[in-house]
Simulated scan of single mutants.
Amino acid sequence: MMQKLGTLIILFGIAIQGFSQDYVNAQQRDLMMKMDEGVALMNQGDYAKADTYLQQVLIDIGVVPAELCFYFGKNSYHLEKYKQSIDWLNKYIEIKGTTGQFFDQAKEYLALSETDYLTEKVGPTRQPVKENLAKPQRIDCSTTPFILCPVCKGSGVLIEQGTLGNAIYRSCPYSDDSGRMTCEDYQKYLQRDLVISP
């Protein structure tokens, strides 16, 4: 009787284990199908809806497959979530290395994400701003006989670009060898009376 009960318990345990394994496999299969639906939506350009599907898979899955890292990173790029894209694409490359199926695409999207992230962080490329002359003001020349030359920025040298793209150096005509401008010339500069040649 005890032996039959022990055998029955073992068989019952095996049945439960088989059932739970089937349940886990079915759940995995459902998540992979949801991931595939998200990828299909991404490929159709519906990035917001694809994001919903992919995020749900990320929440529900136990172990994140490398492919999901790639898809989530790629989709994040299209949603302009560049930092998130960088993180997930790097994770894909860490897991799969250079032999991964999506390595080339991951590298391409990673470069795009990094460029756009830096642009977003720093701001759009700015055109060089012409230096504005300071507003006119008076300086007591008796206490400050010399000022750091605003034309050469105290270097004593003006650097110009030649016709062949080479640099041409010449001494600053507005400062001494130490890059200092006299206070009187600085007053003229502030009043815009000092003629500055290009």
Rank of each mutant, 00 (worst) to 15 (best):
R180V: 00
C152G: 03
S76L: 05
V57G: 06
Q84Y: 11
A48V: 12
L41I: 06
G45W: 04
M33S: 15
P124C: 00
E67T: 14
P150A: 00
V195P: 01
K74T: 00
T52A: 12
L58E: 13
P198H: 00
H78A: 00
L194A: 00
T144G: 05
P150M: 00
Q137W: 03
V122C: 05
Q127M: 08
M35E: 15
S175W: 01
S20N: 11
M35V: 09
N132T: 13
Y174K: 01
N75S: 03
G162F: 02
G165L: 04
V129T: 15
L164N: 14
D193Y: 03
V64S: 06
C183W: 09
P65T: 08
N43L: 08
S155N: 06
K34M: 14
K130I: 11
R192Y: 02
K74Y: 12
Y169D: 05
Q27C: 05
A167P: 01
A111T: 09
Y53A: 03
S155P: 05
S142V: 07
N166I: 10
I147D: 01
L8N: 10
I147H: 08
L148P: 06
I95Q: 15
D51V: 05
M181P: 00
A15L: 14
L164S: 11
S175Q: 02
F19I: 06
N90T: 13
Q161R: 13
G13K: 00
C152W: 06
L194M: 01
I14T: 13
K4R: 15
L194P: 02
K74M: 01
H78C: 03
L148V: 14
Q3N: 12
K130F: 09
E114N: 12
L133C: 08
K153P: 04
T115E: 11
L148D: 13
Q17Y: 15
I95C: 06
Q137T: 15
E94G: 07
Y189G: 03
A134S: 12
T182M: 03
Q161F: 08
A167Y: 12
K153Y: 12
G18W: 07
Q84V: 13
D30K: 13
E120C: 01
G45M: 03
G6K: 14
G156E: 06
L79R: 12
K49I: 02
W88P: 01
Y189K: 00
V157R: 07
Q84T: 15
L68C: 10
Q187W: 01
N166K: 09
E120P: 01
D51T: 05
V129A: 09
D51P: 03
L110A: 01
R126A: 10
S20F: 13
L194Y: 04
P65W: 08
Q127K: 08
E160R: 14
G73F: 02
T182C: 07
Q3W: 12
L5P: 11
Q55H: 15
R170G: 01
M32K: 13
T119L: 08
Q28E: 15
L68Q: 07
N166M: 12
C172K: 04
